[in-house]
Design a protein around this nucleic acid. Structure first.
Length: 202
DNA sequence: CCATAGATTGACT
DNA sequence: GTCAATCTATGGA
């Protein structure tokens, strides 16, 4: 008999996210993002993330020039979501890290389906490894929108649980940015097919 | 006020 | 390979 999946006692808590953002980003690979709603339970194993450092430390970060109406959740306590609209079209999910006022966050860029495949496929319009192999796709699969901005991951319908660690972790430059191009802040599991198709600058 | 760039994706030549 | 979709933030007239 296996135990009930995703018990509250195993959920990642605030201390997991209250560390330097590069460390949290790397540690998030292999972790399982679980979301429950009226449609059911879905579980996604993270295989690609990027770290964005705090205010004034990272020219690529939305928080680089300080708080705005869009990014103000980045300045709140760790373990919550920062959700923004990218190119006016796609939603992207970030996890706030470090400490209140630091504005460091991890962008969720790619994940593998563990549970709820039919729900995720319905939201995305198709099945297969392209369900969540990109930040906008991952958000669409979850049904996330701006209403998720600021949502706590420490309790409630959305959160992280331990999962199978990657056998190997690869580190590269981040994708789609023009400033901060030389920082090696993208982390992914090279064994996964669900890494985003976009290529880093270097 | 207007122009432009941006942590993307899917459709199309 | 190119390009449009269309919201936020910033910088200049």
């Amino acid at each position: 008999m296996s135990a009930a999946p995703y018990p509250a006692s195993a959920r990642l808590g605030e201390t997991f996210f209250a560390h330097p953002v590069e460390d949290v980003a790397e540690a998030l690979l292999g972790k399982v993002l679980v979301h429950r709603d009226r449609e059911g339970l879905v579980a996604l194993r993270l295989v690609e993330v990027e770290a964005y450092r705090g205010e004034g430390q990272d020219e690529a970060s939305h928080a680089h020039r300080g708080p705005t109406p869009r990014n103000h959740q980045m300045f709140e306590t760790p373990g919550r979501l920062y959700v923004y609209l990218c190119y006016g079209v796609h939603h992207c999910l970030n996890v706030v890290c470090e400490a209140e006022g630091r504005a460091a966050a991890v962008l969720l860029r790619g994940a593998e389906v563990l549970s709820g495949g039919s729900i995720l496929a319905r939201r995305r319009g198709h099945a297969g490894y392209g369900i969540a192999n990109g930040p906008g796709k991952l958000a669409q699969a979850l049904g996330a929108d701006l209403g998720w901005d600021g949502r706590s991951l420490l309790a409630g319908e959305t959160g992280f649980w331990p999962g199978p660690s990657p056998g190997e972790i690869r580190q590269t430059t981040r994708i789609g940015i023009s400033r901060g191009r030389s920082d090696l802040l993208r982390f992914f599991d090279p064994a996964s097919r669900c890494v985003s198709r976009a290529r880093p600058v270097l």
